[in-house]
Design a protein around this nucleic acid. Sequence first.
DNA 1: CGAGCTGTTGACTGACCAGTCAATCCGACA
DNA 2: TGTCGGATTGACTGGTCAGTCAACAGCTCG
Lengths: 210, 210
Amino acid sequence: MTPSRDVEPAKPVQLDKRRMILDAAVVAFATRGFHACRVSDIADEANVAYGLVYHYFRSKDEVLDTLFLERWNVLLEVIAEIDAQPLPAREKLHAIASFIIESYRHDPDLMKVIIVEVTRAANSFGRTHLAKIREAYALIADIVGKAQADGTFRSAVTPTFAALAFYGAIEQVLTGWIFDTLPQGEPEFDQAKAFIVETICGGLDAAAAR
Amino acid sequence: MTPSRDVEPAKPVQLDKRRMILDAAVVAFATRGFHACRVSDIADEANVAYGLVYHYFRSKDEVLDTLFLERWNVLLEVIAEIDAQPLPAREKLHAIASFIIESYRHDPDLMKVIIVEVTRAANSFGRTHLAKIREAYALIADIVGKAQADGTFRSAVTPTFAALAFYGAIEQVLTGWIFDTLPQGEPEFDQAKAFIVETICGGLDAAAAR
DNA sequence: CGAGCTGTTGACTGACCAGTCAATCCGACA
DNA sequence: TGTCGGATTGACTGGTCAGTCAACAGCTCG
């Protein structure tokens, strides 16, 4: 590149302090919970001075905001992409469950923070993000609605309701893993994807014709 | 009045200050959220001096503990009673969903506190009660397991998993009502009971034989 | 009547922590 | 080399509350 310095600084640490703070916040929030976590915990975890957090973020809340929005927007995009593909509704739902569960597998701390501190905390904090969260429900409901229209799904329940149940099942499973109420590991992850879809789409009833 | 005193004090207020404090706490927690709610808010709401809260409870946490346990134990008993009756599994599930939804209809503030501050807050606070919460899952899973054994339900998913999905759907619906994401009212309450059971038991798939 | 108990009061304290800010560092550029 | 501005530092402040405590009220029983 240039005469005076390396092609790549190649330092794994440093570089983007803002990013470091965000990553540290994930660990800090996941470990102690948002409320119990002090701003100094984030700074310590990031090996950065207390005040620097306030150089990059207006408040402790804004740090969590940023983490949530970064990730949730990805989720919304992915759901839209999945929906755009020419797949049967059941497979679309499987793909969505799959993406969320893979997100957890890849970065459990981040998902823990998003679910526990935002999604499931619609009081206190998540209130700000209710609309954003609802967008995801709406996208899922849309998938169900279209499948009902073309006869793939029956119309016994409203799309809104089906979306709620579907997302609710995913959230309960993740919550189970997060708090060690449910065994987790590679096989469990794949099993969960299948079970969520099977429960919501297949149902429990042993109809005569099955 | 009578010479010395009435047969019944008949005063609607007073009588049991401890109860008054608990009822006030429900309102205070529901309105401001557990964290944002100060102990003085509870005392004010109960028309009682600050210190009296500490006469009846060791801490602010213990107030919430008490509220949760009082109600959750009732839930566990009711589920056990329902299970003891000679009903098809599907109707047992309907009875459970019904009880929870009626609890909300009867006292939305209390259910809001229990769900938002305990059940969905397994971090911070609800951690203490994880075992208690799991008991409910276990009872539901048991109902499903027995139905699978006698062939009423198919065995495509584990009972544990079905219980998670079932309870998850109920919680999502309540959460929707609590935060006004979902329309609520008499017809919606009954519809929700039916839809929850229909989704979990009937499934979305339009099997040929239906 | 008074001793002793429970119930009741609310001012006060001690701890905690988000957010501020003045000072310092450091790289870019003239 | 000097100046400028963003990056970085961490001590400090202000406000908030949970929980304490000393005093007081009112009942019961001897």
